[in-house]
Design a protein around this nucleic acid. Structure first.
Lengths: 255, 255
DNA sequence: CGCGGCCTTGACGCTTCTCAACCTAAGTGG
DNA sequence: CCACTTAGGTTGAGAAGCGTCAAGGCCGCG
């Protein structure tokens, strides 16, 4: 783990869909919440940190010293009752925040899935800002609403009974995240291992493998390599997530 | 649905465990976030509303006009892909907030589980407060962190593979909620229907029934009536949530 | 008294878990 | 450069648990 202070081409930045403002679909700013001034202000209290692939960033139960903002890379937040079983509560991407805590202790362990670069925002300094800067607070509220919706979508995924449905919903989530960050490259990238996917969607590792196999043999998806795939049959793919195939598959528009 | 403005013995109030302050277990204030002044201020923009058991409070996709704060009663937040299938994202209790939205639309439908009394906080007025009152913002941040942890616990529940484990974790959640609101009455109250429980924990209605039956015949719990139960064997009960219950439960070991 | 929710119970089939062997890819040292 | 090693992934067979369908009980309400 390396650590350095200093200027970089990046600044702390936070992505979120606004809960209250009706759709602004063509906004080029892509929902970047922080104004340049706020980014500067946060940069003064933040320190850049880097972690290599697989490295532990902090452990569940550790005393909270900082909240993190991802610049590049992907991390996973793990929760477990026992030391053995590890459930993955979330994957986090650039422009996300992590470091959720309860009474001064982290509620999840967090590990780097790829090599990552993050800003560490010490909570002591952060709390000072939060109690004085209403605009920053508002942005944090917006971001937390966003994360809450994400957590609920995850729960919705986990409530599905079929492995194929879960995988399909998972791929949709991935696709969304990438459409935010990358330019539209209809290829879906899976930075995490199959085992991570299994722990995230709540099925066994062999079941993940079989589900991907099933999708491949049905020609719904096509794997370029183990980490890259294409949706080969979009209607069939979408049909997997509109469960209850009884009826009503009319392409009604929502959102 | 009735609606009235005016004074009542209640004020808007919000419960949450603070994410950053280390445990203050004997705090009599019980983590009530709002100061009397803030309660007064919110009361000026809030209107009291009442809903009868089963009544719809708002529908997923409706335009957001208000955020709600529960005074008494319980509500459920439902999310569904189709109009038929309804997954329950959360049960909400007194001192909770609900009204989560995305781009100006509610993301869940919300129904009264019991008859409920709520404060409706119009978002127009609320946003004015949020952009000016940093202390209120801070409290909302704390509350949202709390709800985020709850959502993650729900996901953890849904990731469990055995119906008994899910039921046990569900009962633990119920117990916690009640220990906050009521005085310690070791009886657990289930205001919602079995069908609601099934939709919340992600298993079929018959499976819920069978799981309760199993717990009863094992003398782990004891039903007083359909809505009230007692934990009869706490060690066995707790063992269900320290997962690996399938074969980790060797009868010899009871330590 | 009988209707209609809500819940329970039973029988059967199917998906997924578990266990275990095998395969592949990437990293290590000779 | 190649054999070895290890983590990650795939595949198969059997068993277990849950979903589904359907019938029947409980209870409140008109």
């Amino acid at each position: 783990m390396q650590k350095k202070n200093g200027t970089t081409p990046h600044r702390p930045s936070i992505y979120a869909l606004d809960p209250w403002t009706p759709g602004k679909p063509n906004d080029q700013r892509r929902y970047q919440l922080l104004s340049p001034e706020e980014q500067m202000r946060l940069a003064t209290i933040a320190s850049i940190m880097r972690f290599r692939k697989g490295e532990l960033i902090y452990r569940q139960g550790d005393e909270v010293k900082a909240v993190f903002n991802i610049v590049t890379g992907v991390v996973k937040a793990c929760q477990g009752v026992g030391p053995t079983d590890e459930h993955i509560a979330a994957f986090l991407y650039p422009q996300d925040l992590f470091g959720l805590s309860e009474e001064g202790r982290y509620v999840c362990s967090v590990r780097a899935v790829t090599s990552v670069t993050v800003y560490a925002l010490p909570i002591s300094a952060l709390r000072r800002h939060l109690s004085s800067d209403a605009q920053l607070d508002y942005n944090v509220v917006v971001k937390l609403c966003h994360e809450l919706r994400e957590a609920q979508r995850h729960a919705l995924l986990l409530a599905q009974r079929h492995a194929l449905t879960r995988i399909a919903m998972f791929l949709q989530l991935q696709e969304q995240h990438q459409s935010i960050l990358d330019e539209a490259s209809d290829e879906i990238y899976l930075p995490m291992t199959r085992s991570d996917i299994a722990d995230f969607i709540g099925i066994s590792l062999p079941a993940v493998s079989r589900a991907f196999r099933e999708l491949t043999t049905r020609h719904v998806v096509k794997f370029v390599d183990r980490q890259h795939l294409l949706i080969a049959d979009r209607p069939a793919f979408d049909a997997l997530t509109r469960n209850l195939p009884s009826r009503g598959q009319l392409a009604a528009n929502e959102a």
